[in-house]
Simulated assay, not measured.
Amino acid sequence: MNLIETIQKMYEHLNWANRRILETLQKVEDENQEVSRLFSHILFSEKVWITRLQGLDSSRLPIWSDVDIEFCAELVMQSEESITTFLTNLAETDLERIISYKNSSDKLFKNSVRDILTHVVLHGQYHRGQINSRLRANGIEPVNVDFITFMR
């Protein structure tokens, strides 16, 4: 497996994990605001980063916002579509391309496409872990989003 295929597999896992979290949150009767906020943060962040990778302005996109689970479902579909399209057109030589962007505080940064793609995957997994901790604390079975489970 080459590097592009590895990155694509990581994003297949990301999309799978997002769908599994979404399915669980849709079944939970009492909507936990903190859990929904963490999940929407993952999805909004994915949107911000893919926008930056496309060379577009992300300054007006939210990072944190209180939205309901139905809106999260729309974000999951949008994220999966935009990420899949971006990765389909990505060549291995594109991974070292430097992207300039401003963060939500209007500070300028530069990172490689490879570093951004890696960050997005790890950022989402971190927050899905937080979601699972909160689910368990509320007596709800955590969602198995382990990469090895996905690969099985």
Rank of each mutant, 00 (worst) to 15 (best):
L25F: 06
Q26L: 15
K27Q: 15
V28C: 04
E34L: 13
V35S: 10
S36Q: 12
S36A: 11
R37G: 02
L38N: 06
L38Y: 10
S40Y: 06
H41W: 06
H41T: 11
F44E: 07
I50K: 07
I50Q: 09
T51Q: 10
L53I: 08
Q54E: 15
G55E: 08
L56H: 10
L61G: 10
L61E: 11
P62G: 05
P62V: 06
I63Q: 10
S65D: 14
V67F: 06
D68Y: 06
I69N: 02
F71P: 00
A73E: 14
Q78I: 07
E80H: 09
E81A: 13
I83F: 13
T88W: 01
T88D: 09
N89Y: 05
A91H: 12
T93W: 01
L95Y: 04
L95N: 05
L95G: 03
I98V: 15
I99E: 08
K102Y: 09
S104L: 09
S104M: 11
D106Q: 13
D106G: 02
L108H: 07
F109T: 05
F109G: 05
S112F: 01
R114N: 07
R114P: 00
L117Q: 02
V121L: 12
V121M: 03
H123A: 05
G124Q: 07
Q125N: 13
Y126E: 01
H127R: 03
H127A: 02
Q130P: 00
I131P: 00
N132I: 00
R134N: 05
